[in-house]
């Protein structure tokens, strides 16, 4: 599709049109922060949002979900089927889309996770490109502010206030069927405008934290000073993990008798999956009491190394997208930007 332009007013009209066909989730202002919520009108959208409190990972990897139910005596496990009605996430930020591309790899590679992937396939993603840095973000450093895939539509606000529409998939193009009159096709004259805007964006997101040589430094293993330092203050509350768009750890438990329609039937069992955090002691404790990562320092090391060493090796991208959510949520002020600087000796 040749990129098209839409005015801010027409964009709202288009969203209203989408709401008639899909469930639309968009950032709204709530309790002093932005969060994704299902909207009924385009006015509800907080267009001035920088980033949402939680990333969009919860749309796909549910915070808590039933994987299957079975009979305690006879077995016969039945997988639960995720809700696959078509929905739109409007206003995903580039960093969250980059994170989604990474988690897609995890949940489709080697073993296919039907719960995650079915939700992924039934969701249309409309991204809004950042033109300014937000709060604690450092996405330029983590190369996550310009995802090439993972979205169906990407919107970019031009200097003139007009919005550039780029389709990232066939589904994205189809979304404009019947709404073309709201948009105008771009022409050669627009090239200088587009170039100017994107040049400005590129300059805004120039990497500013050193990452060169990080792999070798981590492999050398002389990183303990940092984990020991953080160990003294970390509360192991795991908040950084839950807000992180690239943390997909979960725990699984079996329960009996809690069936929604047949409460108290002891033969009915369910398998529940729930977000977990590798910073918790219980996460590494096996029956008999052995703890594989007994100290907070070793768990922090595992957390950071997975993002900065393990994921790059396996998937070729950083395991951190630099959204900065962990920085603003950490109750004791541990800052991954500072960690990177300390690790690379800057």
């Amino acid at each position: 599709m040749i990129p098209r332009f839409i005015s801010q007013e027409a964009l709202k009209e288009w969203v209203e049109h989408l709401i008639t066909q899909f469930s639309v989730y968009a950032p709204v202002q709530e309790k002093g922060d932005y969060d994704f919520a299902k909207i009924a009108h385009a006015e509800e959208i907080a267009f001035d949002f920088d980033r949402t409190r939680m990333s969009i990972k919860g749309f796909f990897l549910k915070p808590e979900e039933k994987l299957m139910s079975a009979s305690a005596s006879k077995g016969d496990p039945v997988a639960s089927s995720p809700d696959t009605s078509k929905r739109i996430i409007f206003g995903a930020r580039p960093c969250d889309i980059t994170a989604l591309n990474l988690t897609d790899n995890v949940f489709v590679k080697d073993f296919y996770d039907p719960y995650y992937m079915k939700r992924r396939q039934s969701t249309i993603i409309i991204g809004i490109r950042c033109t300014e840095k937000c709060r604690t973000c450092f996405c330029g450093t983590m190369d996550s502010n310009n995802p090439l895939t993972g979205y169906d539509i990407m919107l970019t606000e031009m200097d003139t206030g007009e919005i550039l529409i780029q389709a990232g998939s066939d589904n994205g193009e189809k979304l404009f069927r019947g709404s073309r009159h709201l948009t105008r096709q771009s022409s050669e004259e627009d090239q200088s405008l587009i170039l100017k805007t994107f040049k400005k964006i590129t300059e805004t997101f120039t990497p500013d934290i050193p990452t060169t040589g990080l792999k070798a430094i981590i492999d050398l293993g002389r990183t303990e000073f940092l984990w020991k330092k953080y160990e003294k203050i970390c509360l192991s509350c795991g908040q950084c993990v839950f807000v992180c768009p690239t943390c997909w750890c979960f725990d699984v438990k079996e329960i009996v008798g809690a069936d929604e329609t047949d409460f108290g039937n002891l033969d009915k069992t369910a398998r529940i999956r729930r977000w977990a955090s590798c910073l918790y002691k219980d996460y590494h404790t096996v029956s008999g009491g052995h703890i594989f990562m007994p100290t907070v320092a070793s768990r922090l090391e595992n957390y950071y190394k997975h993002k900065l060493r393990g994921i790059p090796e396996k998937f070729g991208v950083w395991g951190c997208v630099g959204c900065g959510r962990c920085v603003s949520t950490c109750p004791v002020g541990i800052d991954i930007r500072e960690s990177l600087k300390e690790l690379t000796g800057d």
Binding site: D110, C278, N302
Partner: peptide
């Protein structure tokens, strides 16, 4: 080797050894 395991299929991260394996 032995580790705590939940999914067994490289998703849940319980058996991850120091971020890499």
């Amino acid at each position: 080797l032995e580790r705590k395991m939940k999914c067994g299929i490289g998703k849940c991260n319980h058996c991850l050894i120091h971020g890499t394996r």
